[in-house]
Design a binder for these strands. Sequence first.
DNA 1: TGTGTTTTGTGAATTGTTTCACATTATATC
DNA 2: GATATAATGTGAAACAATTCACAAAACACA
Lengths: 192, 192
Amino acid sequence: MKQFTKHTVKNSLKRIFLYRACLTRLKLLGVEKVYSYTLSDETGVTSDQVRKDFSEFGITGNKRGGYDVDELIDKMEKIFHRNKDHNLVLIGMGNLGTSLSRLKEIIDRFRVKVAIIAVPEISAQEVTDELIQSGIKGIINFAPVLLKTPADVIVNNVNLCDELESVIYYVHNQMKSEGTKNLDLLYRGTKY
Amino acid sequence: MKQFTKHTVKNSLKRIFLYRACLTRLKLLGVEKVYSYTLSDETGVTSDQVRKDFSEFGITGNKRGGYDVDELIDKMEKIFHRNKDHNLVLIGMGNLGTSLSRLKEIIDRFRVKVAIIAVPEISAQEVTDELIQSGIKGIINFAPVLLKTPADVIVNNVNLCDELESVIYYVHNQMKSEGTKNLDLLYRGTKY
DNA sequence: TGTGTTTTGTGAATTGTTTCACATTATATC
DNA sequence: GATATAATGTGAAACAATTCACAAAACACA
């Protein structure tokens, strides 16, 4: 069966988030300069991979001199557009019934493009439809359902039960086969 | 730089979670039988991929007859070990100071193997060390730091800021280049 | 019971990602 | 300045995941 195109994240982008978190911590400790292997030590990503990722996002350093922490953070912020403001709406159980009709008004006024959905499973699709009608282009979805959306709307699913079960799965399997055959099925959640 | 082995989830396992969620919903609606394309429609995963995943986990159906929903759910529960009880500890800000010393006692008594860490960044590593000392083998970490753990302990990181930023990144980039060259950098969070 | 149709299950081909290997360049030292 | 060294940056190779394509099996119906 042919499939409509899905937008999938490049792992490299996920790792850029990781590097940034790490760099802000290092900066706090007074570190001013890092090398690809510094980030490797801190994040568990190979130094090769660090450089490859930087290469992909056009981040360059100094041969022999490594990378300037401030500069690196700055470039990453630019990648994430952190230097711009972004309004977003959060739709939770509290305001579900009453204020759904005001949604479009608010979204229009504040030019909101991103929404967080934290409503019960049963209402999630309805809320989503409303949001898309109002021009929302990105959704973080805490409801444990697959939202139906047009191709130009991105949905980022967060399902805490899955996170938990995946860990239980791992722990159980490791106990059972202790490093032998099933290891390739093991789980680490977010893969960096 | 050579890297120690990391445990990474097979995407197929993540998708099994997705299928299960979908199947329980269908069951609620009275559906008794599904085909690979049913699950494809519901989840957005191709039907080829569905069958390939089932094949990997030893799940079989009936040629021409599809899959029995109950049987499928049952097999998946077995994969996740849902039919067994699993105790877990949740360490939040509230009980951080006072009860940390009782942790080992509790973990021992209830044979806990999985912990959820929801403490501030600054305490996360300390708590982790304590947990590992007490025999914890799986951790879900809400603190935005990379925890240092032995190779046989699994850590599943959940970072809500990252989830948010990835969506903002996507929305911004799509606005700018509307479906042209940067599309391969787009983000969909959890990749199914 | 035989024939046509639908669906599974899985090797092979393709596509995507990570690792390797090394040319290139910046810095330090004499 | 010349030389040695340590780091980056990136094609090529290796590895992993997905899609394709089709044989095999089950069902429907005459």
